[in-house]
Structures are given as structure tokens and as C-alpha cells.
Amino acid sequence: MTQKTMSQRMILLVEDNPDDEALTRRALAKNNIQNEVRVARDGAEALELLFGTGGQGGHAIAPELVLLDLKLPKVDGLEVLRRIRADERTRLLPVVILTSSREERDLVSGYGLGANSYIRKPVDFGQFLEAVRQLGLYWLVLNEPPPPRRPAA
């Protein structure tokens, strides 16, 4: 884990495909995005991390941004998004859907459940790199995040 400043909070990457995880990390690195990246390999793990319900008595993390794949084992991405929006602690958390599909029903459901962005992963890595660069610039630099939530009781 790299050292981080208070303003460089972590990114939660919800992604079950290790290739995609590696490529995303590479793209972030290539774009000099230094934030810590926590990876959840399925929806259930993502929810445990966010709400501190993990088995090993872990506490809830408070990422600055969630990059959410849709097609996930156990609990799918849309369900994860629904629970994030349903919970008072994560209601305002920026969530960017980052997935392969651009099926209309995914778009409609994603935005319907309160996704902040919907980005399709391009096959061309050059385009992917560019997409991640803009994403990082926007959400981690330009965008004013909502005020940090009060520590969980």
C-alpha cells in the first residue's frame, strides 16, 4: 500500500475479472492516479467492505469513488448500487459504472438506481487509457466530493 494524503482517498474497484483488474490498475498508474485502490471481486465483498460487515471484524471503508462492474458473481452490480443508495452512510457516494455492456436495459437501470456515470470499457487499450484518464481527472480532481460522512457508530 502506498502512503496517502488525507485528500487522496481510496478508490473501490468492484471487478471479478483479474485481467480487467490488472489493466485498470495499469491505466490508473499510467495516468499517475496515486489513490489507493481496494478491489472487491464480487458484489457481496463490495458490500462487506462498504458496510464493515466482513467476517474478520473489518471496519467500513469510505472510498472517494466506486468503479462498479455490473456482471458480478453472487450479488450483481446493480444490486450493489441499489444497496449503496439505500443506505444513509453511502447514499451520496459517487459511483461510476465501468462495464463491457452498453445494453439499453443496463443503462436505464444504472441511471435509474442513481449511478453518477456510466462508462463502457473500450476494447482498444489506448481508448481505455484515455477513458480512465478523463475519469480520474473529473471525479478525483475537478469534482467536489460530498462532505465526508460521520464515522459509523
Binding site: L23, L70, S101, V123
Partner: peptide, 22 residues
């Protein structure tokens, strides 16, 4: 089928392209 294709068939291509680029 189309939903599955749209999600799953493209991921390996991304790996092919991405790691070739790497």
C-alpha cells in the same frame, strides 16, 4: 444470449489488446 455476449465476449478481447499494448 445478446446480453451475455455484450458483457462476456468483449472482456477477453480487452485482455488481448490491453496486454499486447503492455
Amino acid at each position: 444470449f445478446a446480453y451475455s455476449v455484450s458483457h462476456d465476449l468483449r472482456a477477453p478481447l480487452r485482455s488481448l489488446d490491453g496486454f499486447s499494448q503492455a
